[in-house]
Amino acid sequence: MLNYDKEADAYDTLRGGEPRAEAAARAVLGLIPDRPGRLLDAACGTGIVTRRIAAARPALRVTGADLAPGMAHRATARLPGAILLADSRRLPFADATFDAVTSIWLLHLLSDAAEVRAVVAECARVLRPGGVFVTTVDKAAAHDVGSDIDAVLAPRPRRPAQDAAEAVAAHAAEHGLQPAAGACFTGLGQGRSPRSTIGDLRRGWFTVLPPGDPRVEGFAERLAALPDQDRRRPDPRFRVRSFRKLAAA
C-alpha cells in the first residue's frame, strides 16, 4: 500500500483534483437525505470531497476522520475543527452518533475481507436507525475502460477486489444495512496515458507490483511501444452504493 503521509501533498493533483472531487461529492450528495443531522466521512483523505459535502449541506454537522496524519493535516486546512485522526476499523464514536456515514475510496485499500467487514461494522454501529451508509465499490474495475493500455496490463497480477459490490452488500447485511440506491460518476482527469501509466508502475501504484519488481520494466517496455504516449484514454467510471440502517425493533 502507498505511504499516504508521503502522498498527501501531491495526492489531489495526481487524482483529478477539484473536478473529480466535485463529481464524487455530487454523486454522494444524491444519496444522502437533505435534512439536518450529523455526517461522518470515514477515511476522508485530504478532505477535498468532505469540504464539498459540508458546503452543500450547511444543516449537516460534518466530521472527517483519517488514519494518516499527513492526510488529516491537509483535511484540517479545508475544514478546521472538523477533522480527527482515527482508524475506520475502530471509530472513536458512540453507537448511533451519525445520520450518515460516507467512505469514499477506502474499502479497496484494505488487505482482506475481515478488514472490510470491520469497517462496515463500525460504520453501521455509529449510524442511527434509519441512517445511510455510502461507499464506493469495484474501484479497480472502474479503470478498465477497454483501452490499449488495459490490453497491455491485462496479464499483470491482481489481488482480490475487497470492495466488490456483492461482497460489500453481504457485509452490510450482516450488520443491519439494507441496499438503498446507487450512483456513478466520472473520475475526471484520471484517464491513463501510456507515459503516465509507466510512471504509476514505477511509483508502486499497482499494489501487487511494488517498485523494483522485475516485472515492472517488462510492462513499462510494452507501454512505451504504444502510440500517442501522452494522450489520455477514457476516464474511469466509479460506482457508489448506499445502504440504510434498519430501524430498531
Rank of each mutant, 00 (worst) to 15 (best):
23 A>M: 11
129 P>N: 06
98 F>Y: 11
212 G>K: 15
204 G>W: 03
25 A>I: 11
159 R>C: 01
105 W>G: 09
147 S>V: 00
112 D>Q: 11
164 A>F: 04
154 A>R: 15
176 G>E: 08
104 I>Y: 00
85 L>Q: 10
180 A>T: 12
163 D>R: 12
142 A>S: 15
133 F>E: 09
236 P>E: 05
127 L>D: 00
199 G>E: 13
186 T>M: 13
36 P>C: 08
203 R>Y: 08
198 I>S: 04
166 E>L: 02
210 P>H: 09
49 V>H: 00
134 V>H: 07
194 P>A: 02
249 A>S: 11
107 L>I: 03
39 L>E: 10
95 D>K: 14
158 R>S: 05
174 E>H: 15
124 A>R: 13
200 D>E: 08
228 D>R: 08
228 D>V: 02
198 I>P: 03
210 P>D: 03
126 V>S: 07
19 P>K: 01
219 F>C: 09
85 L>A: 04
40 L>P: 09
29 L>N: 08
182 G>N: 14
17 G>W: 03
91 L>S: 11
244 R>I: 14
62 V>R: 03
72 A>K: 10
20 R>P: 14
241 R>L: 01
134 V>N: 09
3 N>H: 14
53 I>E: 10
237 R>V: 15
19 P>W: 01
208 V>Y: 06
14 L>Y: 09
110 L>H: 13
161 A>I: 08
84 L>H: 07
9 D>E: 12
222 R>G: 02
210 P>M: 05
89 R>Y: 09
203 R>D: 07
205 W>P: 01
149 I>P: 09
115 E>I: 05
135 T>M: 02
190 Q>L: 14
35 R>E: 03
241 R>K: 11
240 V>K: 09
202 R>I: 06
228 D>E: 07
109 L>P: 04
155 P>N: 14
140 A>L: 11
45 G>L: 12
200 D>I: 00
228 D>F: 04
216 V>H: 07
17 G>F: 01
45 G>P: 11
75 A>F: 13
13 T>Q: 14
84 L>K: 08
78 R>E: 01
224 A>E: 13
73 H>S: 13
13 T>W: 13
99 D>R: 11
204 G>C: 02
156 R>D: 03
193 S>E: 15
109 L>V: 02
150 D>M: 03
137 V>T: 10
27 A>H: 05
70 G>V: 12
128 R>F: 00
104 I>R: 00
173 A>E: 03
220 A>S: 10
248 A>N: 10
20 R>T: 15
